[in-house]
Design a protein around this nucleic acid. Structure first.
Lengths: 344, 344
DNA sequence: CTTAGCACTCTCTGTCTAAGAGTGCTAACA
DNA sequence: TGTTAGCACTCTTAGACAGAGAGTGCTAAG
């Protein structure tokens, strides 16, 4: 029997199992379902159906005389086919709007504040990533000389986002020369993304013989140092203590694994980066491509954008037994308003 | 009997108890001590001494027939009077030097890197705080105009540290005016600390009637917005997963409390701020002024400085049963080289 | 003052039992 | 043919209990 064979009753029962398990974290018994469904259907019948669902690998039991627990496959099916999204109420939306941080901060701070908001709203740990630089559009660049060979590079996007980086160049460089380089870059590249600029620059370096050669070379080098390959992708996490409250993680071993993943960052980054071009919310459940340390978690993610250009990802990490109906809406909404606000 | 009554043997035995407990996390029996001390002293004698130590509230037993566990008071006495610091070996120092992050980053990044290094070296969670701005010396200030009423404020210290903040002012302001304000501030205040500057500015606003009045007012306002009261003190934490490995915290309840404190930040900040003027390493043990959530932890802290001006604090947080001999040296060394490197 | 001996206390582990939850199967029913 | 009631069966959980072991406190002797 395959999943597509699910008739209406099987669906209803599967849904009840998933939802009850999400609510209670306790294996779901046939009686509990009978009670919930309020049909005049008996526990015995439900048990028959449950036997079929086990057959289909949608539920399992921890031991012979225990209730049933949904498998990853069941969660997947639930989310794709059974879930009725709980749209945020207008009150909830108002609450989020009212708590939404003011924009007079650097982008990193803004993002952290938003994560804290989403975490306190949803009750789960939140995570975010921002490609930040490589895809940011370039409106203006400024250099501030700090010491003879050290400068601050300030990159400003058309939307008013700011990114600053300190760069140490292997030679002395004075304010007038910096001004020249900045003027040159500003004149040539306004409106492009950083990676496009780098590309063009390297082309031009090959072709240019003229007076600009020196400026070109230094510009290339400074940009490379400021925003080049060594730039670490940073992951933001907030509300990590939320994960400690989940009943399935009341075990220091499991917690260690999860926090190991949080610290390494790479496991989360790789999942996030797998879907940079996805529109809308995506959900990863348990073993679905999540690394061993977070195999018992689910991840709900949504990308945010500036004028249709990918700019970052935010989302929620929690137990597989997550309240998807609410979380998916919340993540979607947060990513949406972030995208909107970034434009202002 | 009071602590000062400790004769040589009592001291030796207390020391053995503390050290064994630090190593094993298991209540220490009289036999274990007899074995360790390698005197021809018997377990029975040790038991007599232990009875005295209980009397003095230096050790306690979880139940009648159990070994002994040091009290906070014992740890305190151990650290103040018995501890032989384990100086870092030259190899360890070399290791730290070799891993020490390059300085071509913003200060926040540098600090985080250092915390990660200290955490991986010590095996404990690390914590840091930097007053960052209010005590930073002012060498140069630059404004970069972002939008008509939004600007980036760049503050540069004599040592080349950079701090940037985005400010939104409630009126339009153009580059020429910004330049004026910057020039004014740079001319007047080079070499002072931010809080001194603010003080002087507010004095001047009261007394000035002349042409500078407008500039003064705007300068005051911008500085206030950029570095004013709303500025949150930020706490840095790295290696949080280390705390999950400690045997005394293999209990989700206790972990929740600790992580709650980590997230609130305030409990840690208040302890750190209590000793901004302390030289050298300070240690807080258990209930010694630590809030309820981290009553079972110890904190080893040291301040770092720039030219004798307080600049920040770093340290280690772990179980009371911490390897103080090693940790104190490590924290001391880290704060020291950070202070040195900040000058370069 | 120190130590050996010994009875005592408490924890820990394993076993056992009874209760309870929940199932699987079967036979009867609509 | 699908649904249901009944019932035996399985497994978990909690509590009680016993035996082993760790470690102590006390006492009396060195």
């Amino acid at each position: 029997m395959v999943v597509t064979d699910l008739n209406k009753r099987r669906k209803k029962i599967l849904q009840a199992i998933v939802e009850l398990y999400i609510e209670t974290a306790v294996p779901v018994s046939s009686q509990a379902i009978a009670q919930r469904l309020r049909w005049r259907i008996s526990a015995a019948t439900i048990r028959n159906v449950m036997a079929e669902l086990i057959e289909m690998d949608l539920i399992w039991q921890p031991h012979t005389s225990a209730g049933r627990i949904p498998t990853d496959k069941a969660y997947r099916y639930y989310i794709d086919s059974l879930l009725e999204l709980e749209q945020l109420t207008s009150q909830e939306k108002e609450f989020i709007e009212s708590q939404y941080p003011a924009r007079n901060e650097a982008f990193e701070e803004l993002l952290k504040e938003i994560l804290r908001l989403l975490s306190s709203f949803s009750g789960y740990t939140t995570v975010a990533f921002s490609s930040g630089l490589t895809r940011i559009l370039f409106k203006k660049l400024e250099f501030v000389s700090l010491q003879t060979s050290k400068l601050l590079v300030v990159l400003i996007s058309p939307e008013g986002l700011v990114k600053t980086t300190v760069v140490q160049v292997p030679y002395k460089i004075e304010q007038p020369e910096l001004l020249k380089i900045a003027r040159f870059l500003n004149a040539q590249f306004e409106g492009l993304a950083l990676d496009e600029i780098k590309e063009r620059l390297s082309l031009q370096v090959l072709n240019t013989q003229d007076a600009f050669f020196h400026i070109l070379r230094k510009a290339t080098q400074i940009l490379e140092l400021a925003f080049g390959g060594l730039q670490k992708d940073e992951l933001y996490l907030e509300g990590t203590s939320c994960i400690l409250k989940q009943p399935e993680f009341q075990n220091a071993q499991k917690l260690q694994a999860i926090f190991r993943a949080f610290e390494k960052q790479e496991p989360l980054l790789s999942i996030i980066k797998r879907g940079l071009d996805v529109d809308g919310v995506r959900v990863y459940i348990g073993k679905e491509g999540l690394c061993e340390d977070i195999q018992e978690c689910s991840l709900v993610l949504s990308n945010f954008k500036i004028e249709d250009r990918y700019f970052g990802t935010l989302g929620v990490i929690g137990p597989r037994r997550m309240c998807y109906a609410k979380v998916i809406s919340a993540v979607d909404y947060m990513a949406d308003i972030l995208s909107q606000r970034l434009l202002i």
